[in-house]
Design a protein around this nucleic acid. Sequence first.
DNA 1: GGGAACGATGTAAACGTTTACACTAAATTC
DNA 2: GAATTTAGTGTAAACGTTTACATCGTTCCC
Lengths: 416, 416
Amino acid sequence: MAPRSPKPLGPSLSRNGRPGSVTIKHVAQEAGVSVATVSRVLNEKGPVRETTRNRIREVAERLRYAPHGAARSLITNKTSTIGVLLPDIYGEFFSELIRGIDRASRQREYHLLVSSSHGDRRELEAVLRATRGRVDGLIVMSPDLDTQTLQANLPETLPVVLLNCRSDGAWFDSITIDNHGGAHAMVRHLVELGHRRIALVKGPAGNFDASERQRGYRDALRELPGGWSEELEFDGDFSEEGGYLAGTRILQLADRPTAVFSANDGMAIGVLLAVRDAGLRVPEDISVAGFDDIPISRFTVPPLSSVRVPIADLGAQAITRLLHTIDMENRHDRLRVTLGTTPVLRQSCAPPRLDERRARGTAPTGESIRTNNPPTAVGGRSTAGGPQTASEPTAGGSKRTGSGKELSGSPRRRGP
Amino acid sequence: MAPRSPKPLGPSLSRNGRPGSVTIKHVAQEAGVSVATVSRVLNEKGPVRETTRNRIREVAERLRYAPHGAARSLITNKTSTIGVLLPDIYGEFFSELIRGIDRASRQREYHLLVSSSHGDRRELEAVLRATRGRVDGLIVMSPDLDTQTLQANLPETLPVVLLNCRSDGAWFDSITIDNHGGAHAMVRHLVELGHRRIALVKGPAGNFDASERQRGYRDALRELPGGWSEELEFDGDFSEEGGYLAGTRILQLADRPTAVFSANDGMAIGVLLAVRDAGLRVPEDISVAGFDDIPISRFTVPPLSSVRVPIADLGAQAITRLLHTIDMENRHDRLRVTLGTTPVLRQSCAPPRLDERRARGTAPTGESIRTNNPPTAVGGRSTAGGPQTASEPTAGGSKRTGSGKELSGSPRRRGP
DNA sequence: GGGAACGATGTAAACGTTTACACTAAATTC
DNA sequence: GAATTTAGTGTAAACGTTTACATCGTTCCC
């Protein structure tokens, strides 16, 4: 590629004519030392005389020298980059996750090589192979993919953390959110409110999160005499549209359910819409609960009960673990962590109507409809502990003179 | 670092003992050819005998060889990676943008090095320098940052596309969305509905998008006899909370505005909430419009009028331009593109009450409150053309028997 | 049959770093 | 004052590729 040429390199002009790429050689030449010394100064390794050091620093600064990443990682075998493989689309969840990962990695001076969509398997393989020599580790989240492909296409030495995947038999580290526990707790809560006929809006088939949440739903209902029934489970695809469709179908059931648990918030919002379009009210006529607690859920009408997921934690922990593995050269044993999820109760859930409860014989424990819960702090993250009551702005039932003071949550800037 | 050792390298064990990293040498040795030949086969350059080629391919496959990215880019001076620098937090907008960029770049077999937050200037500088030898080009979006720092810390040869930045005097390419035009058109629409007293919820000070939208708002009002007035402009920060606060203050005005234009949808949702909490109704008592048309805006109550922004386009165009610049080695002239934005009308805007209009003397053109617009296709993206009527599911005013059939828009999966 | 042209392959230089090792001169130790 | 450490620096190998050039057979064309 490069023509063979004599030694003398122009002061800040590399041989191939493109200016601007000043190398360590230029710095060395300009400072009148060898490249080794420059390298030593810049990496603060080995002893260098004070005066020399200053001179080199000054020259480097003046020439705007920045080491060539590829060259460096070629020899050090470190890229200070970690790869992030994400499923096709993840909306709110996605951006929050990236944010968590980014923050944690920046702190440790690592870069992020992100790949957000990998449709078919061949594409995934291509991406995987392409990562060689580009990343020091990999964070993979692909709830509808098999880990086989991963295992086959990655060098065994590459540290990998699986996020929220079914990690069947794979020897990767994995960090998961407690989908099952969260769903179970939320449905359990609905049951405690007095609901017996609770519909489910499922997530996409084959999706790990979706199936775990379904499992949680079923297990919660299994504790009741009636158990669960397939006819109360409706297909969905994690989209608002899908939720709307499912909601519409649910409302057409002869014996209408008194509550709907949706496998994510997006679909739950679709259900809310369907209920409204059918001329019914939430939660008076039917309760609705979601999963994920995306930011907007506090602002739906009525505010949506949901299951809070520690998304940012998920990312941060993945990074921590990954970098730890990278540091300890030797492979330690496989990690499996499950992060707790927390039900957050808002106004979209209430006890079923009195008459319905009477008809079913579930004893009422208080007045018919709970409106405004007293603000209570949301803390902890245990799944085991029962659901908690949210302290966020409640725009629920009817009039409240909101002062705005109650607005809580981290002041995240969104938009533009 | 590596100990000097004799030539013979184990069949698939690199010298430093870490297995798994099989190099081109291993392949060459195994296939009984020189590395040059292997390289030629794998890159499909130069003539190689059919049989040799097959043998090499087979060996490479068997050994799971993947070229070392860093080594390759060291010599080719191409990384097939482009860097993406984003502002701290961008929620929906952010993920959509990444998605657009990712899709476009993957198609061209480019990787993405993402850096989403760069707080202070020193941090940004560090990130910028770190990109040397890691990326072939840069996409930068930082609506509240000066381009000076960029210019100072990047090699002149690096292709850069600025997204939605004030590109004062910089010689970078820049692609911008028509913030001014969109805001202008939306406010203009409110005016045509009969509104005269229109409040603004501003974005964060110093933010480019925010200030442009404010300018659009002012320019639209300037066309009226009254003009604009500072006392109708309220501080915001692009968050729902900020919108709620601003909304509350707006409603407390003695002479209450009949409409509110918010610099983004998040704040507009906050305003919706504030109105509801004050016991008033949208759009009967007050109209509300936002900006960005984030997915959720179709599902608020009532559905929010907003300005659609071609986010994915923004990303895709940036990539296209960038790669084009990379291909053409020589620098052509600076590009400045503005992408049109499209007002999308939903149920959150209606003519002001009859009595109010009479009091102000603005002639009513029809009946008092427009409820359901006939579904019309949303197309094109011209800002110049007037606002368009949305065809999305309307959950507005009161009961509608939604069939779900009207649900349109791309079937984006969200969640989980 | 003697080049010329070409096809197939190997050799080795480069890319920009880091770092083991060699070397010198000064400082320390005995 | 000699021996030994130590600080400061240079030399050159290595990292894993790509590719210009050299080499060696063939085949082709008069």
